[in-house]
Design a protein around this nucleic acid. Structure first.
Lengths: 125, 125
DNA sequence: CTATGATATTCCCATATGGGAATATGTCAA
DNA sequence: TTGACATATTCCCATATGGGAATATCATAG
């Protein structure tokens, strides 16, 4: 199986730096027309349109026709998926994670066979 | 330019569902040997090793040799990058984002007066 | 030493990529 | 209508993918 399509989910969609930039821009400056994004990002228009297509497909942005322009706005709630995911690990870096780490599989399955023959010295001979 | 390598940064690394699963497992159960991950994930060992390789390259996990096993542990701080990124948009979904949205490109010189969708005719009567 | 267990690495391949270039579609102005 | 502008879509291609299969590497037991 090849890599999942960028449109598979939000995680894949924002893996692309340019797309993250677009999200940042829309968050910072509000809804923007494609043309504005083109000049701001310094990317060719087709490239921008494609990136927007990906973001739109996963629901991170939404379009609205305004005259001959297409105005894209951020649908921030979709980013909540990611936030919720990483948030679960927040305590692991904000706190002492040793406890969780250590209480883990210290008895692993190795004890089913060899009773912990740890660090046998790195002798040279 | 093709898609950036999965090892390019944390965002690309965790775009892959299996790799996210690995992260979750290591967070939940602490450091684990490859073999344990293999049985838990139900994936062929080479596949797991490759995923671990990606995660290791971006620094999300770290290995330690323990006898003939390789024990992988989570380096949660690396996920902070992602957390910090999405966190910036948290106010956009937890709060009223209208303010930010509206103050945006109002110079688009066209006030959105009526959203009136043009196409949503989902019913043939 | 050799054998076995535990992981990592290499080769293969269908698939998707992001950008470039060119073109199509859409919308407004005369 | 025609023309100019704003976006989207299509085609092309070098590159990377993730899994499968086979093999290599490393560590320990005998």
């Amino acid at each position: 199986m090849p890599r999942a399509p960028t449109t598979a989910d939000v995680f894949n969609a924002i893996a692309e730096p340019r797309r993250r930039q677009i999200v940042e821009l829309l968050a910072r400056r509000g809804a923007l027309a494609v043309g504005t994004l083109v000049v701001t990002l310094g990317l060719p228009q087709p490239a921008v349109s494609k990136h927007l297509g990906v973001l739109r497909k996963v629901g991170v942005v939404a379009v609205s026709k305004q005259g001959r322009e297409r105005v894209y706005n951020l649908e921030a709630e979709k980013l909540k998926t990611i936030h919720d995911w990483v948030k679960a690990f927040a305590e692991l870096w904000g706190h002492q994670l040793d406890r969780i780490k250590e209480r883990a599989e210290h008895r692993a399955r190795e004890q089913t066979k060899s009773p912990t023959p740890l660090k046998p010295r790195k002798g040279r001979s």
